[in-house]
Design a protein around this nucleic acid. Structure first.
Length: 134
DNA sequence: GCCAACGTTGGC
DNA sequence: GCCAACGTTGGC
């Protein structure tokens, strides 16, 4: 199983929305690198749910429930999406500041490539981040 | 196929 | 609100 981190601006789609709706189509990705990451996701893969701009924290975990398929909101037909379902909320959100302060996480794409919206997370990184969330 | 101009993302 | 980083577009 692989682990991921997906970003969203709370004004567009927030953790509260996710909690209320349980599942959602992760549409709107318009970047090839991010889209390729979506394509590599498998059913059951876990994703950290990150609030960008407002919050700048990992707030919860979702799980892939449908693999890559065409994004109906993309007129060019170039990009796809996956469906994700609510798994759980972190007891404590993990802020970008916290992640940046831990040198073991300094290779994370979240830090090195701030504009990428879908990125893989190594199992070591996943574990470290989870420890901050309790 | 190069690159300038432009648009977008997201941290600060 | 600003701006750095970076992706995309389109003229040549």
């Amino acid at each position: 199983m692989n682990c991921w981190l997906i970003k969203t601006e709370p004004s567009t789609w927030s953790w509260d929305d996710q909690k209320k709706n349980k599942t959602t189509s992760w549409d709107g990705v318009r970047n090839y690198q991010a889209s390729n990451n979506l394509k590599a996701m498998k059913i059951g893969d876990l994703c950290f749910f990150y609030h960008s701009v407002t919050g700048k924290s990992i707030v919860g975990i979702v799980q892939v429930i449908r693999t890559y398929y065409p994004d109906s909101t993309d007129e060019t037909g170039r990009f796809g999406m996956v469906d994700v379902g609510y798994v759980k909320e972190l007891a404590k959100p993990v802020s970008l500041e916290t992640l940046k302060a831990d040198l073991r996480l300094s290779n994370m794409a979240l830090i090195r490539q701030s504009r990428l919206s879908v990125m893989p997370i190594s199992s070591e990184e996943w574990k470290i981040i989870l420890e901050y969330s309790v």
